[in-house]
């Protein structure tokens, strides 16, 4: 552990990845809370896999067609937002075939991305996109993640009651005159932006885990949504720091270490919950 503290002091890139990781925890904890209580982790999964399609298309357009304003990041943002709106509309309208359609979007996005990457000249390693690498973050990422925190935090602050109402009971919210579709798609777009920025840290395949596991763990303890959010922000930060330190000290990939920690703590918390004496139902008053 001392090695890690020393590295934090000596190596700027380690320091930077830690700061980005901690900042990212804020956006992750907040959007993750909604993904868990609204039970849309499957939708978030589809969005994150579509990000690869955007990255591939962005790279291809940049290198083959010479569209210099385009790039993997632009492609990823466009693809994530488009995927968020499409899966959102599907889940609002498709009815009972929802999961099949979302599953199709999930793999289509990924397949498109892999083909674009194959046809992009110069070797592009899909691995870095699939698994991410927090040690590759730049100062630009620092600003982007900070901006994302402000955006997500602002939206949550402004629309907290509306988001709570559509997560708890969409039908009742609609009867109260809330534009359920608009808030639902807004929530999904915030989730999509969070996913894009965090793909760099954790990769497409694992981003979903850090979105859902800390919030699901927090859900076992918290009784109010904002408690759940705060707790999952803290858990995210702990897993990111712990994972980074572990990865540095034992020379491991940071992404999988972070996810293993998050997963282990969640399963442990579930076990504790299971064997804890059952909370007595409060009596009728």
């Amino acid at each position: 552990m001392n090695d890690f503290l020393q590295a934090l002091h000596d190596l700027p890139f380690v320091r930077l990845s830690l700061i980005v990781g901690l900042l990212a925890s804020v956006a992750f904890g907040m959007t993750g809370a909604y993904v868990v209580v609204r039970r849309i982790s499957y939708l978030a999964g589809a969005i994150s896999h579509c990000v690869l399609g955007g990255i591939g298309a962005g790279l291809y357009l940049e290198r083959v067609l010479g569209w210099t304003w385009c790039g993997p990041m632009t492609g990823a943002v466009v693809a994530a937002l488009a995927a968020a709106i499409i899966v959102g509309l599907v889940s609002l309208r498709a009815g009972q075939r929802e999961d099949t359609v979302i599953g199709a979007i999930w793999v289509l996005g990924m397949a498109t991305g892999l083909l674009f990457l194959q046809k992009t000249p110069g070797f592009v390693d899909p691995m870095s996109y699939l698994f991410g690498d927090i040690t590759l973050v730049s100062h630009t990422d620092l600003w982007l993640v900070g901006g994302l925190d402000l955006l997500v935090g602002g939206a949550v602050w402004r629309f907290f009651p509306q988001f709570l109402a559509i997560c708890f009971d969409e039908e009742f919210a609609r009867l109260r005159g809330i534009r359920v579709e608009v808030y639902y798609l807004l929530l999904l777009c915030l989730t999509a932006l969070t996913i894009v920025l965090l793909v760099k840290i954790l990769g497409i395949l694992m981003v979903i885990a850090l979105l859902t596991l800390p919030a699901a763990t927090a859900n076992l303890l918290a009784r109010k949504l904002w408690h759940l959010m705060a707790l999952s922000v803290v858990l995210c930060a702990v897993f990111t720091c712990g994972g980074l330190a572990c990865a540095y000290v034992y020379d491991l990939y940071s992404g999988p270490v972070i996810i293993l920690m998050a997963g282990a703590v969640y399963l442990l918390a579930l076990l504790v919950q299971k064997f804890k004496p059952v909370r007595l139902e409060s009596s009728e008053q």
Binding site: V37, R39, P161, Q162, L164, A165, C167, F168, D169, F172, A173, R176, G177, I178, N219, A222, R223, K224, L225, H227, L228
Partner: peptide, 20 residues
């Protein structure tokens, strides 16, 4: 039909009636 784990207090749920 509600999620038994949904994190909200009685007061927060009743507040939803004031929305809109």
């Amino acid at each position: 039909r509600y999620d038994p784990l949904f994190p909200a207090t009685v007061e927060e749920i009743v507040q939803m009636g004031c929305l809109g």
